[in-house]
Amino acid sequence: MTHTINPSRRLLLQSLAMGAGAAILQGCQTVPAPQSIPSASHRLYLTACSGIIPAKQIQLALPRLARAGFTLENTAALERKYLRFAGTDAERAADLNALLTQSQLPSLVVAGRGGYGAMRLLPQIDFARLGARLRESGMPLIGYSDFCAIQLALLAKSGMGSFAGPMLGDFGNAHPSSYAINEFFSTLTTPQRSLHVAGPCGRASGEGIFWGGNLSVLSSLVGTPYLPDIKGGLLFLEDVGEQPYRVERMLQQLHLAGVLSRQQAIFLGDFSMQKHVDVYDPRYDFDAVVAELRRISGVPVFTGLPFGHIANKTTMPLGFPTRFRADGDSLTLQFLNYPTISPLGLQPEALLDTQPA
């Protein structure tokens, strides 16, 4: 399945015109819904819960985000280095624990990068209190890759969702993706959105909680209290750097743990499989993995969601109600009832600036 994208600046500016507060994309629709939660100012709080953040990404991303209309907070966390992590466990956990005591929460929280390390922090964070604060304030929490350990624990412990979306490294790319920027702002400022993925997909429909994240991280949480127990859910998975047999092994783990059979459907993002040849059988490829997943899960499996360790990624609410419909030629996901921010005062085109500050 493929998702049609248009990376032009003109589309970005048109789709994010002030007052519209919604995206108009080829292959992606906006559904009318209640007005988004207003924000007096756009305070963007940064976390560094995993690996060390490359200096070049910081140098490019921070000026762009500031020019886009965000007041940046906790930027000192981006400079931390301890062993292979962006600070000690205590320092990295403090990024999120600090949100428990702030009298007024920021507009949104964005993760610095993935890598490894977030899992080490889970016992040090009061996710029940954090989820309650996020729910009360309507503050989006955004990231992917290793950061999904935080997102999954938040959902498991508090029932509060978050967003699979770009991190600092995406905003600090030498040539940022206009599609990713467009999707980021359109999702965060539009209370309901639909994602349309074209391609053969069978026929099915349903509604449930859309949840998941990085397959390696999610499977590592099996047997812990930090993996959500979602029944009748819509499970989303992506990964990178894994050979086909390793992907299947992690899917088998989810199957043996009973996770897959409890879902209504499974949705796969990018796995970068074209870069990896299976060490045991060069003929065993991603299509074979998907076929095995369909066999062991017994539920519909859809591929081609534009998300993962790729430049042209969408932004998707996780842990919130979602409807899906597959009509044989295309798949549509309709995301519902997730928190948003006001588009007023934001200048998304500033994030496409490739000139140095």
Rank of each mutant, 00 (worst) to 15 (best):
I142C: 10
S272A: 15
Y338P: 12
A111K: 04
R193N: 13
G233K: 11
R294I: 15
A180M: 15
L130S: 09
G69V: 04
A94K: 14
T322H: 08
D270V: 15
L134V: 03
Q151C: 09
L235P: 01
L13C: 11
S41V: 10
H175V: 08
F210A: 04
L346F: 05
F127H: 07
Q57S: 12
L152E: 08
S39V: 14
G159P: 02
L251D: 06
T2P: 02
G328D: 03
L331A: 09
L221Q: 14
M160T: 14
P106N: 05
A55C: 04
L13H: 06
A156P: 07
A156Y: 04
K157H: 11
L25M: 12
P321M: 13
S162P: 11
Q29G: 01
G69F: 05
F147D: 10
K231V: 15
R193H: 08
L256C: 06
M1E: 09
F335D: 01
E248I: 02
L351T: 13
R84A: 06
A204P: 10
F210Y: 13
F324I: 00
T314R: 01
A204C: 10
P225M: 02
G51I: 12
N6G: 01
R283L: 15
I37W: 06
I142G: 02
L100D: 07
Q59P: 03
I181V: 14
Y280P: 01
V289M: 00
S330F: 03
N214K: 08
L105E: 03
R249M: 15
Q252L: 15
R294P: 02
D278V: 11
K157G: 07
S186E: 05
K231T: 12
I53A: 11
T75G: 04
V217M: 10
G232K: 08
E292C: 08
L237W: 01
S205T: 00
L78G: 03
E79M: 14
L152W: 13
A33H: 02
I296Q: 10
Y280M: 14
L168C: 00
P38A: 11
E91Q: 15
S261D: 09
T101K: 09
G206Q: 06
F236S: 09
A118W: 06
N182G: 13
T2H: 13
L155C: 08
Q355A: 13
T47H: 03
Q274G: 15
R84H: 13
A291W: 01
C28L: 12
Q26H: 12
P225L: 08
N182W: 06
